[in-house]
């Protein structure tokens, strides 16, 4: 149900993102999806990768600050309005979306969305009852 996401602290300085990504490439870790949140002072790199445990271990060893967080992943029809409907559904139930990022999977008809909310259990329940498909973790790590 939940997907393990890596959150990495990125100092606002040229080369810091490259350093973190190099650790992954050196260890043969594939990135399925990523997003970077930036503030004026620092950034947070969020990623879904092929082997979250190994990636975390290798990043930590190389001195990178990294945490694993659990997020939801949902599968949508790749057509106008799909995401809007889901977000409206959550909003109607008082659930706040903290951040989200979308990407295309192997199935060209489908869009995949990683979504972090303030009430994860509540959101899962609502989506399930509304027939929204959530992503199977083992599927997404291999995208």
């Amino acid at each position: 149900m939940y997907i393990k996401q890596l959150s990495v602290f990125i100092e606002n300085k040229a080369g810091r993102l490259a350093e973190a990504l190099k650790v992954l490439s050196d260890n043969g870790i594939d990135i399925s999806a990523l997003s970077i949140a930036d503030t004026s002072e620092f950034g947070i790199l969020r990623m879904i990768v092929s082997d979250p445990a190994l990636a975390k271990e290798k990043l930590f060893e190389s001195g990178v600050i990294v945490k694993t967080t659990e997020v939801m992943g949902i599968v949508l029809e790749d057509k106008p309005g799909s995401l809007a409907n889901v977000v409206a559904l959550l909003a109607d139930n008082g659930i706040v979306v903290e951040y989200a990022y979308a990407f295309l999977g192997c199935d060209k008809e489908k869009a995949l969305v990683v979504i972090s909310v303030d009430n994860q259990e509540g959101a899962v329940e609502i989506l399930k009852n509304s027939g929204v498909t959530t992503i199977n973790p083992s599927d997404i790590y291999r995208v």
């Binding site: 959150s7 100092e11 600050i65 945490k67 903290e98």
Partner: peptide
């Protein structure tokens, strides 16, 4: 220096 104890996924 950022530390593991302080870092959070939440900005």
């Amino acid at each position: 220096e950022m530390s593991n104890n302080i870092f959070s996924d939440d900005i």
